[in-house]
């Protein structure tokens, strides 16, 4: 676990609301996946969401950029309410970056092309400029020299860092991470987490679904525990780990930290 002190000078939580979720509900057929979710995320917050599998945590963050449609309640992202209006959906998707468990890089495009695709076609950035931005972020995730390779030629950790860079190229105001490290070999997890920590230090608003409790302790300013589609407990990391309130949280923590 990296316990090097991290620079928190930029990690300021402002009063501005970035994401607001009010009484949100979602069903898959008959199955009630998300039940009465209420969550407000301020700009600059780093939130870690954890919980057993099937608890709805991935579904929750996929609702924030409308990869999943919610059926009841309200989601406001960056002051824009997420309705069925396509224009709003497009606007929100280009403001919200997402990193997936299985990277989902486009295998037919080079790393650089992966990063410039959306800026060119969605933001209508000129190619040269888009490439400069892409190189900037690739340097940031420490793989500028791989820019002209194809995703298949990179290791899992490198691919995930490219995926982060790809999302950053859209200059998002919010980043969503959907279990970014759970498809990686142990020795590659650190390089991805380091990148995420760096991002946090720059003051990015982040929602991470992850089981990396070390990351949660170091970076998060709030940890949310979900079970059976609801938010069971949320607290500051110190309190959350040292003094969990709910029985289910205790059980979960004992299982995940028990070894």
């Amino acid at each position: 676990m990296t316990n090097t002190a991290i620079d928190t000078s930029n990690m300021v939580v402002s009063d501005e609301v970035a994401v607001e979720i009010v009484n949100m509900n979602k069903w898959y057929g008959e199955f009630h996946v998300l039940r009465d979710i209420n969550l407000t995320v301020n700009r600059g917050e780093r939130i870690v969401i954890c919980g057993p599998s099937g608890s709805g945590k991935s579904t929750l963050i996929r609702c924030i950029n409308r990869l999943e449609e919610h059926q009841k309640g309200k989601i406001v992202v960056d002051g824009i309410e997420l309705t069925s209006d396509l224009k709003n959906i497009d606007k929100i998707r280009s403001e919200v970056g997402m990193v997936f468990q299985h990277f989902n890089l486009f295998p037919h495009l080079t790393i650089l092309e992966n990063c410039t695709l959306a800026p060119i076609w969605v933001r209508k950035t000129p190619r040269r400029e888009a490439e400069e931005i892409a190189m900037h972020f690739l340097e940031k995730v420490k793989i500028p020299d791989q820019a002209h390779k194809y995703p298949g030629q990179l290791s899992g950790g490198q691919q995930q860092r490219v995926a982060i860079a790809r999302a950053l190229c859209m200059k998002p105001r919010i980043m969503l991470f959907d279990e970014p490290t759970s498809a990686l070999d142990p020795e590659m997890i650190k390089e991805v987490l380091d990148t995420m920590i760096e991002l946090a230090q720059e003051g990015m608003t982040m929602l991470c679904v992850t089981h990396e409790m070390g990351f949660a302790r170091q970076v998060a300013n709030r940890v949310i525990f979900m079970d059976q589609g609801q938010i069971v407990e949320q607290n500051e990391p110190e309190e959350f780990f040292l003094n969990p309130q709910s029985e289910r949280t205790k059980l979960f923590l004992s299982q995940i930290l028990g070894h």
Binding site: L105, F106, V122, R166
Partner: peptide
């Protein structure tokens, strides 16, 4: 094609025709 490719294209803000033309159909 894995479902993830469609999702990643959508998450980047590409609309249906753009994601088809740039991401899905080439593959």
């Amino acid at each position: 094609l894995p479902q993830g490719q469609y999702e990643a294209a959508a998450a980047l803000g590409l609309d249906y025709w753009k994601s088809m033309r740039l991401v899905i159909l080439p593959q």
